[in-house]
Nucleic acid binder design. Structure first.
Lengths: 370, 370
DNA sequence: TTGTATGCGTTATCAT
DNA sequence: ATGATAACGCATACAA
């Protein structure tokens, strides 16, 4: 007669009796009639263990539905299989798709992704990094909200959590990084617009910081996260090169979100000398721009041209199709995780910077300036 | 003279010397001159500890930049602050935004979200759940890929990880669940179409399983994930009620993704008696439908009406604006996490089902049947 | 090949 | 109020 009334004694009752206490390695070992060490070796596939012992252990684990406790394992090994992904908003097209790629690449490497949305708020980013450090994350992929404030990232590295910078660089933070060549792409966009006769070209960019910065001088541009800054610099440079006198006359920095972009664009379109073209920094901004253009009753591309710095999925269902820069989101995500894995494997290797090409896709929304 | 040459002895060298070994509670205790127990109480804010001791401990923790090791804590407490989010694709508009809301709600409650994309593959879903169990996740929010196969979810519950079903229900799985009232919304859509004289109304739905199911009998409908199934049932019922003889003549189930939807729609439009309206199950499918309509050179809403079962961000920038059912994504996510938190707090409470209203937004893309 | 024994960093119990 | 000490589940150095 059995001396304990466990599930085994009650028979193969198919998992209805909810057991709140998980099966441990010890139980498996006992069941298999070996020591914990042997059971651990058999399951972990290391050390040396006889065929017979291995069979017994594996069978016992199977029967008991043993699930190794990763938490306990981590306390012992000092490392977890968790990586952090810290971005502005996984609900947005750009970061949503990037995050998906990062997360998939992580899984393929046996790591799990914890995601945090910062809404571009540096405080949230700091808190997220701090949390990931407490969780002893194996590494962090971050699209930093600030170009200048990166001390928390350096601290993470010092604490043993490698950091990979996605889409943006940070002053004074030495880390692996990957981003797309927004500068070249934006220059190509501007070249096309200028060659088509456009001179009053507006640029509406999402930007953290003081909203609705007034035209005139823009020291703020240097404080923008680099991907935005790169595009704007290319924009200003192109205009200057084309002989435009006040290149920043039609530059608008506005808070993230469609509504702000719509308002900013509406103001631009209300000017006596309204722009003949609008360059939207990304897909979300483009939505606001198109809304404003529509409200103003202007036709595209006849009366105004529109182009976006990111290619949203819907770019080909507008009439006319939206010209845009296609960001290599999937490759960005994959590369980010690759860089992270390489650094985890070899913490002392030199930092690497990957710049991925972004293609300018000229479609119907660009016309000739009147 | 100090008897140890720690960072404190070397002065406030600002974090340049990378320390791979994290500060432990013991170190803080030693620094503060108290026992580990007292340090733990002071930091944990429980038990009783004198003012002076508390001060010392807090100061020491601050100086040493102590970061409590959540992994060690979890081994001891047996519970983690990790929740799983298992959905088809966080890069998609619907799940991307839902996931964002879930993740934010989790953070607000002190939990962290690890996300997994299944691409609607049940095997991936199983592996994800298994992984979350090994990680000892505190709970799981899942949009199950299969309506019938839910044993892994029941196992998760049995293992102590509560499950909340998002957007979809599963046969034989008793769990909290939240979804939107797709049936009512789809019925409203159909009512409008029918009242405008439409009879040949196509429905293009994303669906896992055998692709391109032929018209005729659709036993497969009952196997669809419920949100899709609910819509289709409403569609078929509405057509039947309107006296349409073969309600499934224009029903198309196709694999997830824009391209498949485009092909399916193209086939429908090529029929001698082409549909006068198309109901797209979600935003991604709508993209394909619009593409096909455009390729066929048909005008909306003059020659064909289009409506989507999910309201994508871009619905108002098409010409004309796309009619759609607005899914309460944010509320779905928040509710899912609320349900999970409540169950974690009280595992034995009765299961709860929340059905959120989905609003049908009639815009310009619906016209009168010729 | 196998088992014994110890440690990971925490929380929590129980004396003091 | 405080400190010594046991546990959590696993991995592993070392002894057998």
């Amino acid at each position: 007669m059995p001396e304990h009334s466990t599930a085994a004694a009650t028979g193969e009752a198919p998992g209805l009796a909810a057991r709140r206490t998980a099966v441990t390695l010890t139980e498996v070992a006992v069941r298999a009639g070996v020591s914990r060490a042997t059971a651990a070796r058999a399951l972990g596939g290391y050390g040396s263990v006889s065929q017979s012992a291995r069979q017994l252990v594996l069978a016992a684990a199977e029967e008991l539905k043993y699930r190794p406790n990763m938490v306990a394992r981590s306390t012992r090994t000092g490392t977890t299989s968790i990586v952090g992904i810290v971005v502005a908003d996984i609900g947005s097209p750009f970061f949503g798709r990037s995050t998906r790629s990062i997360s998939d690449a992580a899984r393929a490497a046996g790591l799990e992704a914890v995601v945090v949305n910062t809404d571009e708020e540096i405080e949230v980013e700091r808190a997220a990094v701090s949390m990931l450090l407490r969780q002893r994350a194996a590494g962090i992929v971050v699209a930093p909200a600030s170009r200048s404030d990166g001390q928390h990232l350096t601290e993470a590295q010092a604490a043993g959590a490698p950091v990979v910078l996605l889409d943006r660089r940070v002053h004074d933070v030495a880390a692996d990084r990957v981003y797309s060549d927004n500068e070249t792409a934006a220059t190509a966009v501007m070249a096309e617009l200028i060659s088509r006769g456009h001179r009053r070209i507006a640029y509406v960019s999402s930007a953290a910081g003081p909203e609705g910065a007034v035209p005139g001088h823009y020291p703020a541009v240097d404080d923008l996260v680099t991907s935005a800054g790169d595009r704007i610099r290319a924009y200003l440079r192109s205009l200057s090169a084309a002989g435009v006198e006040a290149p920043d006359a039609y530059l608008r920095l506005c808070p993230f979100g469609e509504e702000a972009a719509q308002q900013a664009t509406a103001q631009l379109l209300a000017r006596p000398e309204r722009p003949t073209a609008v360059f939207a920094s990304d897909g979300v901004i483009a939505l606001g721009v198109l809304r404003a253009v529509h409200d103003a009753g202007l036709s595209i591309p006849g009366e105004i041209s529109v182009v976006a710095g990111d290619d949203p999925t819907w770019s080909r269902v507008t009439t006319p199709a939206l010209s845009a820069v296609a960001q290599p989101v999937h490759e960005l995500g994959q590369t980010a995780m690759n860089l992270l894995l390489k650094r985890i494997a070899d913490p002392d290797r030199p930092f690497e910077e990957r710049v991925l090409p972004a293609a300018f896709l000229s479609r119907g929304s660009i016309g000739t300036a009147s």
